[in-house]
Design a protein around this nucleic acid. Structure first.
Lengths: 241, 241
DNA sequence: CGATATGTTGAAGTTAATCAAATCTTGTGG
DNA sequence: CCACAAGATTTGATTAACTTCAACATATCG
């Protein structure tokens, strides 16, 4: 029975934290769990929006394709995070493409129409959703600032430090949530540059790279880089007004 | 009597479009109009959030200040647009600084507390707000994509073409909504680079620059630039999956 | 086990930042 | 109304970061 799994996943999502039992159950009732193969499309740009999603296992890769075929990864969604909620309230079409990162990726899909209905009748849900979106908005702005103001090295360092770290007998490490190609696209650098940066830090003894696993040996050093040390960064201008 | 002015301004804002008369009147009732001097602070980062704003005349300049004093313009708000709504639902503190762009800038301030109360009790308002925020979110993501994927020239061209164009006996023109220094900061280029780009296009006969007024003589050429022609742009990668 | 995609490394070219300094604006006090 | 000071804008020369191009190495999948 997947209801239990669905319940478990949705409980972990901020959107539904403050929801009273009865409403939460209704949301669970309008949801279903689906398993995807690696690279399988979850939806395509301009598809009509059937609902939004929460990741249970694996990952979702949101990206856009330019007219000339180049693609840009906008977000890599990890377990327990929601995505595509905004599409519900917009044009009713998904504004991006979405594929599964790993074989066996599991997503909970919350049906759009019934959810919208519930949304309209329940202020608590509305407020929780709005709060969640504000968070996302600020996240996007933060990412934006990062990407623009800082050099490639700072972006990568910041990104790595932002990944959920795990512990091990060999120390702290993080797992890249997708291929290095995608990470590079997300950070808006070429795969070559990404590779070279990892290499440099590896040579400096700050990290070790084994496939998609990065062992962090000197987080403070990365922190310094991520705060603008070293990189080019637009030195911008001093206050005024 | 400023109520008429307030009513007039708020009617033009998407957030309140779908509101029935009675609710709209209540929103008007919790708003006040205020005039600012050039460069005057509207609020500072971390100030407690008293409410949010709509521009009636002039402009609002939202920016952040880095620890070392450098500032970055995140948004320049023009008449009939709202800002700082997100702060209401977040921590209750403004996440940025805001100053008035022009002498005599007029802003409508909608008081936060009563508005939130109304928001909680009125699903229609909630939905309109959410829709507005989704728009903003997509706007931010769009801006982000621009800033990152495209070169300085493409960003500027795109920005210019996005400004509201006016007509004149001498043709089409746009008015920069703030100083070139601020525009440069917003586009994340140095003032020097901005100046050089305008110069180049001016030499090519595509535009004429007279202070903050730009006459557009060859919009298609700018359009080509803004679509990635010329610029460096991360040539990224071809499809897959 | 071979084919295709991903990741790595090296050399060269370009964009845009930085540094330095001149010129133009704007607001102020005389 | 004019001279001056402060800031904004422009221009030139230099420099560094990152992309691009090319080629090799390593995975991954059928």
């Amino acid at each position: 029975m997947s209801h239990h799994a669905i319940r478990q996943v949705l409980q972990g999502v901020p959107h539904f934290q403050s929801l009273r039992r009865e409403l939460f159950d209704r949301v669970v009732g309008m949801s279903r769990l689906r398993v995807y193969r690696k690279g399988e499309f979850v939806f395509r740009q301009d598809d009509p929006c059937r609902g939004f999603f929460v990741v249970r296992r694996g990952g979702a890769r949101l990206y856009r394709v330019a007219p000339d075929g180049r693609e840009r990864v906008l977000r890599i969604v990890s377990p327990n995070s929601a995505f595509a909620e905004a599409a519900l309230f917009q044009s009713g079409h998904y504004p991006v493409f979405c594929t599964a990162v790993d074989e066996g990726t599991e997503l909970v899909e919350i049906a759009g129409a019934p959810f919208l209905e519930l949304f309209r009748s329940e202020a608590a849900l509305a407020e929780a959703m709005v709060a969640g979106m504000c968070r996302r908005l600020h996240g996007a702005i933060g990412h934006m600032e990062e990407l623009i103001a800082l050099g490639a090295g700072a972006r990568l360092a910041h990104y790595i430090l932002g990944l959920p770290g795990r512990e091990d007998e060999s120390g702290t490490f993080v797992e890249l949530p997708s291929s290095k190609k995608d990470i590079a696209s997300y950070l808006s650098v070429t795969p070559e540059t990404l590779s070279r940066l990892l290499r440099r830090w590896s040579d400096l003894g700050w990290i070790s790279v084994r496939g998609s696993r990065l062992d962090i040996h000197d987080a403070p050093a990365l922190g310094a880089i991520s705060d603008g040390a070293e990189g080019p960064a637009v030195k911008s201008f001093r206050a005024g007004a």
